[in-house]
Amino acid sequence: MLKALRDPLKYGFAVGRIRVRETKMLGANRLDRLIGAGDFYDQKRILVETDYGNFFQEAATPEDVEQALNDYLAVLYEFLEEIYPEKKILSYFRSRYDFHNLKVFLKAKYGEKSTERIWSKLGMLDAEVAKERVDEGNLDEIEEPYASALLEAMEKFEEDKDSQQIDVVLDRALHLYLYEVAKRQKNKFFLGYVKSLIDLANLKLFMRARNLNKEARFVEDALLDHGFIPKGDFISAYYDAPEVLIGKLKETPYAKIVQDSVAGQEFDLDFFDRKADDFLVSFLKPAKYIAVGLEPLISYIIAKENEVKALRIILIGRLSGVSAQTIKERVCAQYV
């Protein structure tokens, strides 16, 4: 009853705005048209009818497309920042870019990869300042939860000289942060989404480690906490046939996804990624029928991010000469 009184007053305005904007989303039909378009210029002509139109006027190369989509997301986050009553929700979405950037900066610091063009400006931290501070090792100036995650990652790397530890530590810190943000919202739907996300990340980690014949100890260290599936289920099934894990998952919606991802003695990770995305979209669908509350707001951001992801695959795929059929297979189901 209290929720029914509170939610319309707290979220009503924001939900009203996004309900109208949802009608302007690309949807499956327009995505199909984009996939079937003759070339990139035909695709641009289709996009002119949408709110992406202005961002693609000058685009001609995959780099331009990437830039245009990032600009679009920056404007989207700005809009959401303006209307969302809970600013913390946006930190949930934007912190992912920060953690990604920190991984890139830290690896660059240890001579792993170039940072050119692969870091994002969509996070909450000023990426250039963060890079300088990571390079100098000046973590006092970086806010939490980034500073302690960086410190732990640096210590682990110094210990093992294994750059994978940077990914493991920062991924764990990111998911812990996402879980804490969701838990603070006291919203079952949001928390369920984050827990599913953690489960899927753990499943992928399990599969990748199996494909690479990693030791169980590595998986034990890298598995994330706070999912629906206990970490013990993964560890105890690690050296067994895939059927053992599938058996442990039989009460969950993941059993079929894992079953279908088995390819001989290995797991097909591309297939799993696509099915995991589809599963998350199907998780969001019930939010369409919730009139007002936090759920439609969260679903909208995720749906827009999926739309941008789909657009990236379609446009860059076409520019790179990938066939329409392959692109169609890679584009996940859409929320609208």
């Binding site: 319309p8 007053l9 009503g12 305005f13 924001a14 939900v15 009203g16 705005r17 996004i18 309900r19 109208v20 904007r21 209307i83 007002v292």
Partner: peptide
């Protein structure tokens, strides 16, 4: 009224 009007304000801001 406040419930309906608050959401309507959001819709009207867009349309």
């Amino acid at each position: 009224i406040a419930s309906a009007a608050k959401m309507s304000a959001g819709v009207l801001a867009e349309d």
